[in-house]
Structure formats: structure tokens, C-alpha cells
Write a protein that binds this DNA or RNA. Structure first.
Lengths: 205, 205
DNA sequence: AATTTCGGAGAACAGTTGTTAACTGCATGG
DNA sequence: CCATGCAGTTAACAACTGTTCTCCGAAATT
């Protein structure tokens, strides 16, 4: 039962993944707009022309990387926003989650932070799209909270955007941090989130 | 009294400025890490080798651009933070100031937003240094406000950092906005700042 | 007036880039 | 079992890159 997807298609996927991983590696020390097609294929161990079997251009590859970096993160969002516990516990857990994610996928995080305002328009658009989705998801999560009673949809979206921006800024800070500084960054991020949640509590009236 | 700086040095400065402006133009559609030396000299109308008389590399030129983009902004900061008026008026004035700055110097703003997390380490470091300076200046401005009574220096620095990040995010949003959307972005930014200032008011206790 | 300094030009270098064309070999579907 | 499809290779192209060395002319110094 069930074909294991075909020997042929499987091998294609392996090459595609090799290209994506090689690119991600190279992007540790440069921006996407300077990433060369040959450079990528060389690092992936395939011929330059093989690239065209998978992507039209490096910009196209970048869009695929956005999907890989952010696409699988959506389930996590709603689950985290509507977690149990008091405000302090929820803040600590959210920051812990960010820290772990940055530790486990530093290249993906770096890529997103770098290309969010980078020099390749389609990639910027793809990232903006994913972040807008995150924002709507956080909004939905917040709406379920009893503390959001009386809030307009517009204001909830504003708060969600503030949170998403803050999450990304914290992740970027973790990335740039030298070993041992993570504690300080976590404390600063917690204070920021605490201030925002205080503002949230007194928003009405 | 006073030599007008010498014909020779003056011409050198003109060429240097031509290189910086040509680079800034080219950086509208790419990142610094893909900016070529020859590309810059071609756009500036000088020979490739002339580049070396002014910069060691394009990374070096990038650091100079950071200075040009952010160096002259410091006086403005303290003046804006410690302005008169109630909270709403001060928020509106700050956002207006950002909007005007983005309108008048879009290339500089784009450059900073893009290279803040870009692929060229010395430039990232230069931007981080300038933003840290901004944060300290905002902190000093906030400290003068009677509303900051009882605040620890650490907390003031946290709040200042939050403001600086928010300013940059707003500027970046203005940049990406299509004509006519500026009003909405200004309104969203105002709401964010209002929420933060509410959090500030209730921070203690 | 003679000499030094120095910003910029010119030519040449080895190496790299994206893209094209024609090919090879093997998994696939009839 | 055979013919088709297609991922990947090889070779070649014109164009471009950063860097070096040599030179020129005019401003600056003496």
C-alpha cells in the first residue's frame, strides 16, 4: 500500500533540500541579493545548471526559504498565545520558546530578520505575508482572552502587531548575543512584554 | 583668517560625496553585501581605481553611510523627547517628525533599516552603536520627565529601547507604504505609542 | 621657480558570474 | 520490454568582478 512517492521524485526533493541548506549556510555571512547561483550549487555539490530544475532564480529560492522558515511555525502561535498561567508565567514561557527556537534554528531566524527589509522585493513580500498571518493569528488568540472584553478588532490587531514585532526583535537580539548574554536579553525582553501587558490592562477608559 | 579648506581637499570631498550618493542610489534595490566597487564608480562617473583613494572596501563605504544617515540625527532626539504638550500631542508630533524625515531622506532610512540586520558585520556594528547612543539619549530625555519619578535607570533604558525600536519600525513601514496609506500607518503607530505610554504610566505599583 | 604630493585615469590580470545548448543515463508508464 | 520523460552533467559564451602597477597633471610646499 502507498507508493513511497517514487524513487525519482524523492531524489529530486533531496537535491532541492541540498540547495536550500547550502544557501542557508552561505546566507550566514551575506545577504540574499549577493547570493550567486553557482555559489549555491558548488556548496550543494551539484552542477550549476541543475539549479534551474528547481528554481528560476536565487530570489525564487529565497521565497522557498521563507516558507521553510516560517510556514511550520503557525501551529505554535495560537497555542502559545492562549496558554494558561498568570501574565508573568506566560511572558517567561513565550521568551523561553523564542530562545529555544533561535538555538535550534539560528540560520532560519537570521534569514528572516535579514531579508525582512532586504534587497529582494519578492522575498520581502513573502515575509510580510507570513508575518501578517502571524499577526492575525495572535489577534484571534488574544480575542479569546477575557481581558480583551470591549476591545475593538482594530485595537486587537494593533496589539498583535506589537507582539509580533517584539518577538522578532527579541529573536534577532538572541542571535547577535555573545554566549552568556542570553540571560540579560531575556530579562530585557520580559520587561518590555510586561510593560506592554500593563498598557493592555489599562487600555480602556 | 581661515583657508577655505584648499582646492585640492575640496575636490576630494566632492568625489567622495559622489561615491556615497551613487552607492545610496544603487542600494535602493539591493543590499550592501552585493554592492560592487566598479558599479559604484561607474554610477559616480569616476575610474574604478579612484575608489581606493576614499575607502578600503564597500563595507568601509557602508560604515561611512551609517555616519551620514544617523550621525546628524542626535540633536533632534533629545529635543523631541522632552517636548511640551500632553501625551497625545507629543505622540502626534513625534510621528509627524518621522514621516517628514522618511519623506525627505528615504534612501538613508531604507539603508539603515536594511543593513541593521544585513550581511556586513562592520556596518551592523556601526548601526547598533548609533542606535545604542539614541537609546541612551532618549533615556536621558525621559529621566527629565516628572512621570519618571521612582524609575530605575535599567527600566528607563528598557523603555527608551522600546521607543527607539518602535520609531525604526514606523519609519520602515512608511517606506514600504504605497501612496495614500501613510495615514493608516500613522494611526497605527500612534495607537502603539499610546499603549506604551499607558504601560509607562502604570509601571510602578 | 623648482620640487614634492597626491587624486584620479588607463590598461591589464586572473577569476567569477548567469545562461545557453546538446548530452547522458535511469526511473517511469504503456 | 520498449519508448518516453526528465534530473543532472559537460562545455562554452560574453560579461563582469576586485586588485595591481604605471602614469599624468595640477595643487601644495619650499
Amino acid at each position: 500500500m502507498s507508493h513511497t512517492a517514487g524513487v525519482r521524485a524523492a531524489q529530486k526533493q533531496r537535491t532541492r533540500q541540498a540547495l536550500l541548506e547550502a544557501a542557508l549556510d552561505l546566507l550566514a555571512e551575506q545577504s540574499l541579493s549577493s547570493l550567486g547561483l553557482r555559489e549555491v550549487t558548488r556548496a550543494a555539490g551539484v552542477a550549476p545548471t541543475a539549479f534551474y530544475r528547481h528554481f528560476h532564480s536565487t530570489a525564487d529560492l529565497g521565497v522557498a526559504l521563507v516558507e521553510e522558515a516560517l510556514g511550520s511555525l503557525h501551529p505554535l502561535i495560537g497555542h502559545t498565545v492562549s496558554a494558561a498561567g498568570d501574565t508573568g508565567e506566560r511572558i517567561a514561557r513565550a521568551i523561553d520558546l523564542i530562545a529555544r527556537h533561535v538555538r535550534e534554528h539560528p540560520a532560519h531566524v537570521r534569514f528572516v530578520a535579514r531579508e525582512r527589509n532586504g534587497g529582494v522585493q519578492p522575498v520581502r513580500a513573502a515575509i510580510a505575508g507570513q508575518l501578517a498571518r502571524f499577526t492575525r493569528e495572535v489577534r484571534t488568540g488574544l480575542a479569546a482572552d477575557p481581558e480583551s472584553a470591549g476591545w475593538s478588532d482594530e485595537d486587537l490587531l494593533m496589539l498583535a502587531g506589537l507582539y509580533v514585532d517584539q518577538m522578532l526583535a527579541t529573536a534577532a537580539a538572541f542571535l547577535e548575543a555573545e554566549p552568556g548574554q542570553e540571560r540579560d536579553i531575556a530579562r530585557e525582553a520580559a520587561r518590555r512584554l510586561r510593560l506592554i501587558s500593563i498598557g493592555r490592562r489599562h487600555w480602556l477608559g
